[in-house]
């Protein structure tokens, strides 16, 4: 089967410190991948580096989307090509309502005019599914949203923007059990045979209702073990200690 996202021997640094040290990862359409790992292993860095956050520097390696090397593309072009990242701490942007922002972003990513009426209708459905207060989308983007509302808003954006691959950077952190279920439902709604999900998490809760194809353990900038869903359970019980030893 063709590869959707391929990461080859990726090295990256932030503030002069090497964080990713030769990371390899291949994601095919229809797959759900999970990356787990101890704090500081490089999980969030991976997400940021894929989207070319200027705060991080790729020192070597390749990121290939649909056969095309996207190493040098600016973030917005990567987004247009179909990679979405759900932020750990989404930024607050005053002056534009969430609704207008979504419409604007949708038009940028799809390259087409967005019809307000239909858009609002589709959005309403998602908002209900995500148990969001419908008034939130009239408020300024993330401004004054609670932590949980911000995370749901990220999932809403994922649903609306319909990326080929969604990277969820600890979208479950700081959420209560019900909210995690909601987020998980959002992921199920999004998922189909032609797109893919990469979930970065500490927590098994978000994985419960999802079909997981692969679990990767990321330690010290490299994937040290790949397995099926059972690996997540093993880590929940035993932690990362044994993989850290492998590294040494």
């Amino acid at each position: 089967m063709k590869k959707l996202l391929e990461i080859k021997q990726l090295h990256a640094q932030a503030a002069d410190k090497e964080i990713l040290k030769g990371l390899n990862l291949t994601i095919k359409p229809g797959e759900v991948h999970v990356i787990m790992g101890p704090n500081g292993a490089g999980k969030s860095t991976l997400a940021n580096v894929i989207l070319n956050n200027p705060q991080y520097i790729k020192t070597s390696g390749e990121v290939i989307l649909d056969g095309e090397n996207i190493n040098e593309l600016p973030t917005n072009e990567i987004a247009k090509k179909g990679i979405f990242m759900s932020f750990q701490s989404p930024e607050e942007i005053p002056g534009i309502s969430t609704f207008n922002f979504l419409k604007y972003a949708k038009s940028k990513i799809s390259g087409e005019q967005v019809k307000s009426f239909k858009f609002r209708h589709d959005l309403k459905e998602y908002v209900e599914e995500l148990n969001m207060n419908p008034k939130l989308i009239e408020r300024n983007l993330n401004v004054g949203f609670s932590g949980g509302e911000k995370k749901k808003n990220e999932i809403l954006q994922m649903l609306v923007l319909e990326p080929k691959i969604a990277i969820l950077d600890e979208t479950d952190s700081g959420l209560d059990v019900d909210a995690i279920k909601t987020v998980s439902r959002g992921i199920s709604m999004y998922k189909n045979d032609s797109n893919a999900v990469l979930i970065i998490t500490h927590n098994n809760k978000i994985l419960e209702n999802l079909h997981i194809d692969y679990v990767h353990v990321l330690v010290d900038g490299k994937i040290v073990k790949t397995g099926d869903a059972s690996l997540a359970d093993e880590i929940e019980k035993e932690g990362y200690a044994k993989y850290k030893k492998v590294e040494e």
Binding site: L51, T75, N76, A79, F84, I93, Y104, A105, I109
Partner: peptide, 11 residues
Amino acid sequence: EIFYLMSRGLS
């Protein structure tokens, strides 16, 4: 903030 917005497709 710039990175966040660019990740949503804005130049």
